[in-house]
Simulated scan of single mutants.
Amino acid sequence: MRRINRSPLQKHETMNFFIYISPWIVGFSAFIFFPMLYSLFLSFTDSTIGKMGNFVGFENYYYVFTDPLFKAAAMNTAYFSILGVPLQLILAFFLASLLNMKLRGIGIFRTVFYLPSVVAGISTVLLWSWIFNANYGLINYLLSIVGIKGPNWLTDPKWSIPAIVIMSLHSVGGQMLIFLAALQDIPNELYESADMDGAGPVRKLFNIKLPQISPTIFFNLILGIIGAFQVFMQPYIFANLNANVGRNRGMYVYVQYLFDNAFRYYLAGYGSAIAWILFAATLVLTLFIMKTSKRWVYYSGGN
């Protein structure tokens, strides 16, 4: 192989490059890469927090897949993802379309719709716990006005995940802003050509808007799925706010199952196996969506 001779300036720039990124490399190695490798090693042991255990091979993974509580947590997480992610995308796109209109004072509405996504999570859950209260909650009160008896949102396993999904819809401000930026980036010439051809709002939606913002849909879809797989705070706080919920199988999600085993029962090896199963499931689903994106994601550059 021919040796590449670099000029002193190129060598100096290369050295500066590694110097500038060295804090990121050190941080990534110390707080992400090596802890991940260590947790992978722990997943093959029966270690507890503070005590190194023995090598047990794939026993932790076997016990995970045979635990009925794991199956319930995984099903609830999948249910939340299937129900919540599409609704979040649809609502975020709908709000972005409304806020994309050229109206007077539209900036105020954009701020108002974005604010809920920056409010502290615990305070939001506390607010929604009052809204979902079966006795004096706002939702059941509104249902009673039209003669419908509201369910026990936080105690009935059939309504627990829908309650979390409804609560998650109020914090789509981040996705809304991303959609709004994508909509504003669509060339006006496309709309003008569509008007000349007599296209209506529906044809503009499916032939212009959705194809043009398909990369943004793809981006929000990936982030939405990753976020849905990691949902934890809402069901955990709901369970602690309502003593009668206890271990509500309808609200018990995957990360809470991981948290209980790793930090309540101190099973570091078993908890690491649970974490790596979640990582593998997220990676496989993400790669699958990326593979299928070639069929429905349109890039203006033609790639």
Rank of each mutant, 00 (worst) to 15 (best):
L177M: 15
G107T: 04
V146N: 01
I145S: 02
S97K: 09
L127W: 10
L205Q: 15
K209H: 07
S117F: 12
I106L: 03
F206S: 11
N135L: 13
N207D: 13
I108H: 05
Y191S: 12
E192C: 06
S214P: 00
L138V: 15
G198D: 03
L177C: 09
L91C: 03
L143R: 05
D185C: 06
L142M: 15
G121C: 08
I145G: 00
I208P: 01
N100Q: 08
F109R: 01
G107F: 08
E192V: 02
F113G: 02
L210M: 10
F132D: 04
A134H: 13
N140F: 12
A182T: 00
S160L: 14
I166C: 05
I106R: 02
S168F: 08
A181S: 12
A92K: 00
L177F: 14
V165Q: 04
I164V: 15
Q88E: 13
L126V: 04
D185P: 09
L115R: 06
S97L: 10
P116L: 08
G147I: 12
I166L: 14
P187G: 07
K204A: 11
L89M: 08
I122F: 01
S160T: 06
L177H: 07
A120I: 14
G147N: 04
L98C: 10
A92L: 00
E189F: 13
G84A: 13
L91K: 01
G107I: 02
Q175G: 12
D185N: 15
G137V: 09
T124M: 11
G107E: 13
F93C: 00
L190R: 10
K149M: 03
P187K: 01
V202Q: 09
R203Y: 10
P157S: 06
W153R: 07
S97W: 06
L205R: 13
V118Q: 12
L98S: 04
I131W: 07
V119H: 05
G174C: 12
G200I: 13
V146G: 01
Y136K: 05
L205F: 15
R104Q: 04
F132Q: 06
N140G: 11
M167H: 08
P201T: 10
I145H: 01
I90K: 01
R203D: 12
P162S: 14
L169E: 07
N135K: 10
L115C: 06
G150T: 11
D195T: 12
